[in-house]
Design a protein around this nucleic acid. Structure first.
Lengths: 249, 249
DNA sequence: GCAATTATTTGATGTAAATCAAATACAGAA
DNA sequence: TTCTGTATTTGATTTACATCAAATAATTGC
């Protein structure tokens, strides 16, 4: 099966046994209140780590669905195939976040996941999650929660796309990244945008020229400092105002 | 707790015990390959039906999360609260579809669900789903599937919002409704739009004037027949071309 | 039934952002 | 280093859509 070439056979090549119990990302990634005997069980579920070089695919639209992927380090973009074949970015994932939920519906991945930089992901065989016994039952709750969170996030994104204009979209995007970095213990003021302007544009529904212009404008207004992929937030409040303060259609 | 007033206490007033095993919507709603003894179990899980008058709320953003709702008849819209307090429609649900997944993430509903016409919903206590025993384990798979489907649908919506312009959005919206009606055994050519133009506009990210103009244009082009809420598709192919044929930004 | 309210359509005008085009900056290879 | 391709920025023009405004149609209440 052609579609399988990328994801499956490679899985057993560069792998390291990885214990969730020792993982610094556990709090964010699988923050189940786990007794230590349950943690051992979890280690059996998440049984390998895999490295992906920048630009390589984690899975392709059409691949059979087997795994969820937890980002340990790096940055991943999700692209959904449009009716007419062109791709659009529908999400970005950073450390501690889990991707792959798009595959459960039809047992085939509906999107393509691409590493934006060299990344390390934990590979979680989904059928093991589904067949955990009674003692691991609250693991189901955790995955329901993760999926619900993704649904809520997508709704927020839909609102942003249908209700806000360029300035507000970029502001919301920057603030969202800022918060996610902050939650992970990084500065909420100094961000590195791992994706290209093109990806940002695709995600936010605007052309790269517009993305560029808005960023320049924000710089001129003293909201941001921009040096290619590095962005420093100078006026967090100003950005928030742009999002909340009726810059809508 | 004020937020609870709407959803909870009312739940036990006008209720009818409803057996999934006899429900005509089961195929679409909970199409688990069920042995009949398992079906009995299911009947215990989905234990009541409730009527909602047009315009009434099924749940409010902020309500504590307890139930999922399966639409038996009628039409429901989902609204998400924006940063600045205004609401935007993020989904429509018709018979056989399940809503409420937005509540799992934080144990509070993040959106508001409103009946667009007199509707009848099956109320599914979510904690029962989560605590089904081994013999009902594949029910988890089914709910994972439903949630994944919602995620995929939202991604499609994001693509539509960020990548297509007015004409294509409306075309995609009509075709989507058409298909969903068709799957339920209704005509895919004669549709009744239960929602207002305003809701359509909110959902598709355009002003009602634009929605109206596009519909008029489609009528003039011979793609549709429009009589207020009733829409008849005259040229399915033409609509599909509009969606697929690069009418994108 | 009629009046009052609400929803929808149609028209004229303004604007945000796409498009077209070209310059500049940056990154990797020879 | 210089060359080559890619990414980003900046400018001029066009366009899709929002906005403003008003007419028409459909609902709702009395």
């Amino acid at each position: 099966m052609n579609a399988e070439k990328t994801a499956l056979p490679e899985i057993d090549i560069p792998y390291v046994k990885q214990a969730c119990s020792n993982c610094i990302m556990r709090e964010l990634c699988l923050p189940v209140a786990l007794a230590s005997n349950v943690l051992d069980k979890l280690d059996e579920l998440v049984y390998l780590r895999k490295r992906f070089k920048a630009g390589t695919h984690i899975y392709h639209a059409g691949n059979n669905f087997h795994y969820l992927y937890a980002v340990r380090s790096g940055f991943v973009k999700l692209e959904t195939l449009n009716e007419d074949g062109r791709e659009q970015v529908t999400g970005f994932y950073m450390m501690g976040e889990i991707l792959g939920f798009d595959g459960i519906a039809t047992d085939q991945h509906m999107c393509t996941a691409v590493a934006l930089e060299d990344s390390e992901l934990c590979v979680i065989p989904f059928d093991r999650i589904e067949h955990v016994g009674q003692e691991m039952e609250h693991l189901h709750h955790h995955f329901y929660m993760l999926m619900s969170r993704e649904i809520v996030r997508d709704h927020t994104m839909m609102m942003l796309l249908s209700g806000m204009q360029g300035d507000a979209r970029i502001a919301a995007f920057i603030l969202n990244l800022s918060q996610r970095f902050h939650e992970r213990g990084y500065s909420s003021y100094d961000l590195v945008l791992r994706m290209k302007r093109e990806d940002i544009g695709s995600y936010l529904g605007m052309k790269i020229e517009t993305v560029s212009r808005v960023l320049t404008k924000f710089r001129d207004q003293g909201l941001l400092e921009v040096h290619q992929k590095h962005v420093r937030i100078l006026d967090m409040n100003g950005l928030q105002k742009l999002v909340g303060h009726h810059p809508c259609k």
